[in-house]
Design a protein around this nucleic acid. Structure first.
Length: 383
DNA sequence: TCTGGGGTCCTAGGACCC
DNA sequence: TCTGGGGTCCTAGGACCC
């Protein structure tokens, strides 16, 4: 049986949330950025786009292109809360809602369609509900699979609605540039172009054997993408796999070689990572740091431990040890701390009791930190 | 004062083991 | 003249996504 998949993509999500909170932003070019110094635009409204303002552009460049641009410092928890309300609206239509990112979701309405009259009506009533409840618009693609649903929502933005029926797939893809497909980025696009493949139509007709040879395991996948085929299921929230890594990084207000500052930042990042791990019940045994120098050269170094850890102090000790093992010829712009190789619970039974005591202490610290802000309570050495 | 932050997946070479 | 081979884990880096 053919499936019926919806992709819902919120329009200029972050800045639209800010606009519905602050009507003064409406009708004017405005954008959300990371921080007001040294950051990039994360979301630009449609009034800003004619000036060439796009997500990923430095705030400097954005201001240069559009001096009257209003920049709003992002408030991520506000967007997460709004998103959660939107996702619960989507669950009114089907339990099969996959949260693809903070502003995107896939719905499998193959079964629940029986309750509604047509996919078009489902999509329209979703748009209406979100507009009523949140004063926000979204674009929706309706198609037989996720690849095409995502393509559809992107083709008619903002406030769009595009239905791609199975019989229309060939026509839609015939002259569509391969780079429009989710999963084909700049590098892959360039590689395909260099082989004379510019459109999805051409990609679908290209011999799989040649794609296999050139691209290895993804050769077959590229061929299917060219034909608009995709059997990836919609994975609802309660069937999601556990996270595989946690990380935090920060661009410093100014580049520095000051070891005291760098040490403190590593400790803060380690604390942040560890708090999330404990909140979600994880231990990890691979610690990684990321370093970006003033010249933007960026690299990472990791090490795998013999035991699983989740306290900020332990993570910091290892992160700092890695940091010290690297020569630092230039001032540092960004630091990051990540943990991977995760396990859901503590395995070594002999250590369990000792561990449990410490866990209670750490959880108490988490509660205080969550309530009073980030650095109320932490291990010595932060200040 | 050019260039954020959080993820996933894949590759490739070396170590190590049987 | 000789240099097996398969599997797993480790590190580092890159592509891609929002």
């Amino acid at each position: 049986m053919d499936r019926l998949i919806l992709h819902i993509d919120m329009d200029a999500f972050f800045i639209s949330v800010e606009q519905s909170d602050n009507p003064e932003l409406q009708g004017k070019p405005a954008a959300v950025c990371g921080s007001l110094i040294r950051s990039v635009v994360t979301s630009a409204n449609y009034e800003a786009r004619p000036f060439g303002i796009r997500a990923g552009m430095s705030t400097q460049e954005a201001k240069r292109r559009c001096p009257q641009l209003i920049l709003v410092e992002g408030n991520h928890s506000k967007y997460t809360e709004t998103a959660a309300r939107i996702f619960s609206i989507l669950r009114e239509f089907t339990p099969l809602v996959e949260v693809a990112s903070v502003d995107e979701a896939y719905l499998d309405i193959t079964q629940s369609l029986l309750l509604f009259q047509s996919p078009l009506l489902v999509a329209q009533s979703i748009k209406n509900r979100i507009r009523q409840k949140e004063q926000l618009t979204c674009s929706i693609g309706v198609a037989p699979n996720k690849l095409l649903a995502k393509l559809g929502s992107g083709l008619k933005k903002p406030d769009g609605l595009m239905v791609i029926l199975k019989r229309d797939v060939e026509e839609v893809l015939k002259d569509l540039p391969v780079s429009k497909l989710n999963g084909i980025g700049p590098k892959l696009g360039e590689a395909l172009n260099s082989m004379g493949i510019f459109t999805c139509g051409q990609l679908g007709r290209f011999p799989v054997s040649v794609l296999d040879k050139r691209f290895g395991v993804i050769g077959e996948r590229l061929h299917e993408m060219g034909l608009g085929l995709d059997d990836n299921p919609v994975v609802p929230f309660d069937e999601e796999e556990d996270a595989k890594s946690f990380s935090h990084s920060v661009t410093l207000e100014e580049d520095t070689s000051d070891l005291n500052i760098l040490r403190r930042v590593l400790l803060q990042l380690s604390e942040k990572v560890s708090r999330r791990m404990r909140r979600e019940g994880f231990y990890g045994r691979r610690i990684a740091i990321t370093v970006r120098y003033s010249d933007f050269f960026t690299f990472s170094k990791q090490k795998t431990l013999f035991k699983w850890v989740n306290s900020g102090n332990e993570i910091f000790q290892h992160a700092f040890q890695i940091f010290e093992s690297i020569p630092h010829p230039k001032p540092i712009r960004l630091l990051g701390v990540g943990v991977s190789q995760m396990k859901k619970e503590w395995c070594q039974l002999d250590l369990f009791e000792k561990r449990e005591k410490k866990d209670n202490l750490l959880k108490a610290m988490d509660r205080v930190n969550e309530r009073f802000g980030d650095w109320t309570l932490t291990w010595g050495g932060l200040y």
